[in-house]
Design a protein around this nucleic acid. Structure first.
Lengths: 222, 222
DNA sequence: TTAGATTCGGTGACATTGTCACCAAACGAA
DNA sequence: TTCGTTTGGTGACAATGTCACCGAATCTAA
């Protein structure tokens, strides 16, 4: 599969008619952006809707009080519905999107997006499913922030960030932004995990020693 | 204005072509539901998209731990995008919608909704604006739950619930669900507000004595 | 290479919020 | 009236957030 027929990479788009897919491929623009770039944020409204072909975009928020929290990530094969939403509503973002890795994305102008929504039932379904998933995920996040204990949240986040590896390259500060808490809280929790022999720490990284124990605490009891 | 041309009540819908409005009026069904009814919830997927003509619907969530939190309210003149979202994504709700008052709503079948999105640019804009507003509101809520102090949140909620009146008919328990906290926390905060002379309490109601002070604490410094 | 600045993580004291186990008063229904 | 339920109060304690520090590791520039 080459970059030319990128619609095949999206389960929701592969079902589109050949005609619609060609329109999408024809009118879109594949762009590359280096890691660390802010692709959208306050005062930086994107002109296009993005379909992420490769890499990860982190969406986070800075509150009036200066606190930061990571809201969600967009992975390859997903579209940025927030971009879409704000494209169409002309509202300012209260959040920003930052490339965590070098990324490749297909950029679609607003008008093309609108045409596609009008013309294709499959495309509509794709878009609304993405919105729906985002909203239900935000519900879950509210629940977690409001009611879940920090040790459970941290264990869960460590598992998620590890991505199957045993070493996570991150700092206590970054972990605190992931969970919307204070750095000191992370430091104490990691010390407790270390005391139990679940993790080991070195400057700038956390090693998972007993993944099972963390998964268990996080409630991954499948 | 009668109930027959209810589209006029929605700023976003009044701009639709006469043709589209007639389609909407023709294919929709105005329903009345008594206060207290759960109009959607887990295992109770709605068949229709709702446009709320009169009354208020409270959307809230019960977590695995048994904690409850109010997510948002739908007021007259708004549509229920969550309903829409889940209509189209066929996912189970993790939230429930409860009528706070007797309500009247226009119910639109899924297929009619889909047709309208396809046919009318104005309708698309209306729908996406509603999604966008919902998502950005959820962002704000996450920020508030994660970082805002309880006294500020409670003051803000009291102002919002008062709706201009000086008496709020509610219990400490209900207020705790509004903010996703414990009843004891509300009791203590209200005692502190009372000590300062900002409110007075009686069983099942809170009286606002110094609205200014509450607004000030809540940051309504316009 | 070294000196100074910056980042990273540790610590203790304290404030705020959440949890638990109670209690009594007010209220409502039989 | 009586009994069960709802509402709100209280104290002890646990968990988390805040603040003011500290030293060590790392980086940077002269």
């Amino acid at each position: 599969m080459t970059i030319e027929n990128w619609t095949q990479r999206f389960p929701g788009l592969a079902k589109l008619s050949a005609e619609t897919q060609n329109l999408l491929l024809d009118k879109s623009n594949v762009i590359s952006v280096p890691a660390g770039t802010t692709i959208f944020g306050p005062g930086n409204s994107p002109e296009n809707m993005l379909f992420l072909l490769d890499g990860t975009v982190r969406v986070q928020q800075v509150s009036e009080t200066g606190h930061e929290i990571v809201l969600y990530r967009i992975h390859a094969g997903q579209s940025c519905v927030l971009t879409t939403a704000c494209l169409l509503a002309f509202e300012d973002y209260s959040a920003e999107g930052i490339c965590e890795t070098d990324i490749q994305a297909a950029a679609i102008p607003r008008t093309v997006f609108d045409d596609l929504v009008a013309q294709s039932k499959q495309f509509r379904d794709f878009v609304f499913a993405a919105f729906s998933k985002r909203i239900t995920d935000l519900f879950l996040m509210i629940d977690e922030v409001a009611f879940q204990k920090m040790d459970v949240r941290l264990a869960d986040k460590l598992i998620a960030l590890s991505d199957g590896q045993d070493t996570i390259a991150t700092t206590h500060q970054k972990l605190s932004v992931e969970l919307g808490t204070a750095r000191e809280v992370i430091s104490r929790q990691l010390q407790e995990f270390q005391r139990r022999g679940w993790v080991e720490q070195s400057r700038g990284s956390v090693h998972l020693i007993q993944r099972n124990a963390l998964e268990n605490l996080a409630g991954h009891n499948h």
